[in-house]
Design a protein around this nucleic acid. Structure first.
Length: 385
DNA sequence: AAACGCCCCAACCGCGCCTAG
DNA sequence: GCTAGGCGCGGTTGGGGCGTT
């Protein structure tokens, strides 16, 4: 249907901002604040449209913007949030203090998306790309085949892992997809509202949801790109997510501490004696006691039970050695990413991360999705509870 | 040193949502 | 209920920087 331009473009400047323009905008906003972007440029003496001013301010000039490279944990967060929220960059940015939606979007498109593709993971659905089920292409494209770890793998057993995706898992994904594509948007809204109400009334939606999902006894691999296989099938419809820490957007928004407040980039090394994994585990476990058994997803590449790994993979994997000691009770979790994350100097290479996640890809066929798990029922239960 | 190609990211564009009149 | 304006969001683009040949 179109709409009128946001402003009269005649005589308005476009393109890169000059330092003088920046200063004018900063001065004006510091003095008057921002509010009416339409009139702001005129009042500030800028030959720009309000939209341009807003963009410049929110994406660049804002004082609380954190610049510089994304930390590994920020990257993890982005991937995890994207698996839930899809391309809702503003919502993702809201969980990453100091980062703008534009910045995150750019980072996703230029770095993360490519890496996921290299890993054979669909960056949209966060599920293994079915067109890559051809093992030769996987081996050809993935570093899995090139890493020391994989070179030590038992390749026959690897081949025996086909099909890559458990048919039950695909069934669940398909079912979820059809459910989430329900044209009635009010149902998901109701779910959001209900969960919000649960949170506000002190009931843990995590626990409640875990009860619903109790039939799923098998932990989902930690790699978020895997955990969301059955849930993030579309960008906007994955509101109920039985296999990820956030079950829907409402919960995400209502519990800003669950992710947004973990130590930021600036103090990423300051976990005390904790690894990030431990910290992250505590964060989730503290709000969802008893959930571990049914939902041990603690973060992207952050927690998967060894018991569900193919021994031929895990035993020979370099990530075994990479599983730095988390001390005591955490040993049942692969502790790759966060443990290295806590020591930036030993940040994993892209290849290492890919290899690790590729291993998790291999684990997906281990899932046992009970036939009696009716996703539609699950959705209905969410709506009715 | 020059040419070329690729990558990154700031900025723009178009659309949808919300709200006031 | 309709319309127009304001705002925000997501997708796209193009120019500069950088690496390679």
């Amino acid at each position: 249907m179109g709409r009128a331009p946001c402003c009269d473009k005649n005589g308005l400047k476009k393109g890169p901002w000059t330092p003088e323009e920046d200063q004018k905008l900063i001065d004006y906003i510091q003095k008057h604040g921002y509010g009416n972007w339409r009139t702001l440029p005129k009042n500030a003496g800028l030959q720009r449209c309000g939209k341009s001013c807003r963009l410049r301010w929110t994406n660049y000039l804002r004082p609380d913007i954190k610049r510089g490279r994304f930390s590994f944990e920020e990257e993890e967060t982005i991937i995890q949030l994207h698996s839930i929220l899809g391309n809702k960059w503003s919502a993702i940015a809201a969980r990453l203090p100091g980062r703008t939606d534009n910045e995150i979007k750019n980072y996703w498109n230029t770095h993360i998306r490519k890496r996921l593709l290299r890993m054979g993971i669909d960056p949209v659905t966060h599920s293994p790309r079915l067109d890559l089920l051809d093992l030769s292409s996987i081996l050809g494209n993935s570093s899995l085949y090139n890493t020391t770890a994989s070179s030590q793998m038992n390749m026959p057993s690897l081949l025996g892992l086909q099909p890559m995706v458990n048919p039950d898992f695909l069934k669940l994904a398909t079912s979820l997809l059809s459910s989430t594509q329900n044209p009635n948007p009010s149902s998901s809204l109701i779910q959001d509202l209900n969960l919000s109400a649960q949170i506000q009334s002190g009931l843990s939606p995590l626990v409640q949801t875990s009860q619903i999902q109790a039939p799923i006894q098998t932990p989902v691999p930690s790699c978020t790109t895997m955990t969301t296989t059955a849930t993030a099938t579309t960008t906007d419809t994955s509101r109920v997510s039985p296999s990820v820490p956030f079950f829907n957007e409402a919960q995400l928004m209502d519990q800003p501490t669950s992710f947004g407040q973990y130590p930021s980039n600036n103090d990423m090394t300051d976990f005390g004696d904790q690894t990030f994994d431990q910290w992250q585990s505590q964060e989730f476990l503290s709000s969802s006691e008893g959930l571990v058994g049914s939902n041990p997803i603690l973060g992207y590449c952050g927690g998967s039970h060894h018991t569900f790994m193919d021994p031929s993979i895990s035993d020979n994997s370099n990530f075994g050695s990479n599983t730095t000691s988390t001390g005591g009770g955490q040993q049942s979790y692969v502790n790759f990413a966060p443990s290295v994350m806590s020591t930036p100097s030993s940040s994993p290479t892209v290849d290492e991360r890919e290899s690790y996640c590729s291993e998790n890809m291999m684990m997906i066929n281990k899932f046992e999705i009970p036939d009696f798990l009716d996703v539609n029922q699950f959705m209905l239960a969410q709506t009715n509870c």
